[in-house]
């Protein structure tokens, strides 16, 4: 798969697929960007244009992010336990942990 330092040989370049990009779209103002899928593009400008054509034909987005797939750093499933579980049992981070007198609003 051609990376940033792949050999500059035209014949070989034509045979590899353009790099893979991940596409994130924002469905409306104030909402978070969500992963929509991926596509191949030779550079950022065409990745953005392709993302617009492939993933927003039905008006699904007000904003698009494209990221080269190999730039994404992901957590590993085997580390899921130590990585995520400690956060799950810290009840003091959840509003339900705290008792508030009945009838008091907006707390």
């Amino acid at each position: 798969m051609s990376g940033p330092d792949a050999p500059a040989d035209d014949a070989e370049a034509g045979e590899s697929e353009w790099p893979l990009w991940e596409v994130f779209t924002q469905p409306g103002a104030g909402r978070p960007h969500e992963h929509a899928g991926s596509l191949h593009a030779p550079d950022a400008e065409l990745a953005l244009q392709n993302a617009r054509d492939v993933y927003t034909r039905r008006g699904e987005a007000v904003s698009i992010w494209v990221v080269r797939s190999d730039a994404i750093v992901a957590s590993s499933p085997s580390e899921a336990g130590p990585f995520f579980e400690p956060g799950n049992d810290k009840a003091y981070r959840h509003p339900q942990f705290y008792k508030v007198p009945r009838g008091v609003r907006s707390v």
Binding site: W18, L39, H40, A41, L46, Q49, N50, D53, V54, R57
Partner: peptide, 11 residues
């Protein structure tokens, strides 16, 4: 020439 362009041109 590539799938992404088929989609772009159709648009």
């Amino acid at each position: 020439p590539i799938l992404e362009e088929d989609i772009a041109l159709a648009n």
